[in-house]
Computed example of a mutant assay.
Amino acid sequence: MGGNLATNTIETRLRGIAELHRSNFLPSPTTHRLVELALKAVKRRYGTMTKQAPPLGKEEVLNAISELGTSRINLRDKALLWIATDSWCRASEIVAFRVRDLQRQIDGSSLLYIARSKTDPFYEGAFAFLSARGTEAVLQWIKEAGLRDDDPIITKSQRGGCALRSTQQLSPES
């Protein structure tokens, strides 16, 4: 498999073989010293670097935002993209933001209060920055969706659903 498959693929297949043996209460051949040495040789010869697409830069995100229209779902997506690009928050933190967590600043920007975070084990809370343009987009979405203080900022929305008031919070996987 060396040279034909990425080392990560080979390791994934070895884990699958090991799990199959474990589930049948059999010893795994993947822990044999020859298998370990063979994998080490493949890594040494072909390397372990993975091919990954480069991340989006700020310019690409701003271009994507500018391409969005004024429909209900586009307003929601603009707010979501601005929050994500300005705050650098995790998906779980973004979907947890409530309208009350948005604290306006004199210069037009805002602070978003992060009540719970993966990196805050004692739930002391923290703040994330939201630019003036991001704040404007979020406020436009809040007005369009008719959100109240306790409602999540990022909610489910349907195309053409302007008459509907849906305040169901998105999941981080959505």
Results as ranks from 00 to 15, higher is better:
residue 52 Q to K: 08
residue 38 A to R: 10
residue 38 A to N: 03
residue 149 D to G: 03
residue 149 D to K: 14
residue 120 D to K: 00
residue 170 L to V: 15
residue 22 R to A: 12
residue 131 S to A: 04
residue 15 R to F: 02
residue 169 Q to S: 15
residue 24 N to H: 15
residue 59 E to N: 05
residue 8 N to W: 01
residue 134 G to D: 09
residue 47 G to K: 10
residue 23 S to E: 10
residue 130 L to S: 03
residue 8 N to T: 11
residue 94 I to K: 01
residue 61 V to M: 07
residue 163 A to W: 07
residue 50 T to D: 06
residue 152 P to C: 12
residue 37 L to I: 15
residue 38 A to L: 11
residue 26 L to G: 11
residue 15 R to N: 07
residue 79 A to L: 10
residue 50 T to E: 11
residue 162 C to S: 11
residue 47 G to E: 04
residue 93 E to K: 02
residue 140 Q to G: 15
residue 173 E to R: 12
residue 80 L to T: 15
residue 143 K to H: 15
residue 136 E to N: 12
residue 121 P to G: 12
residue 31 T to L: 07
residue 54 P to M: 03
residue 17 I to K: 02
residue 26 L to I: 15
residue 154 I to C: 08
residue 85 T to S: 10
residue 68 L to A: 02
residue 93 E to V: 03
residue 58 K to I: 00
residue 47 G to F: 09
residue 71 S to L: 05
residue 163 A to H: 06
residue 170 L to M: 15
residue 161 G to E: 06
residue 110 S to A: 12
residue 71 S to A: 09
residue 127 F to W: 05
residue 83 I to T: 14
residue 135 T to P: 12
residue 151 D to K: 03
residue 1 M to Y: 00
residue 170 L to Y: 12
residue 79 A to N: 07
residue 38 A to P: 04
residue 61 V to G: 02
residue 63 N to F: 05
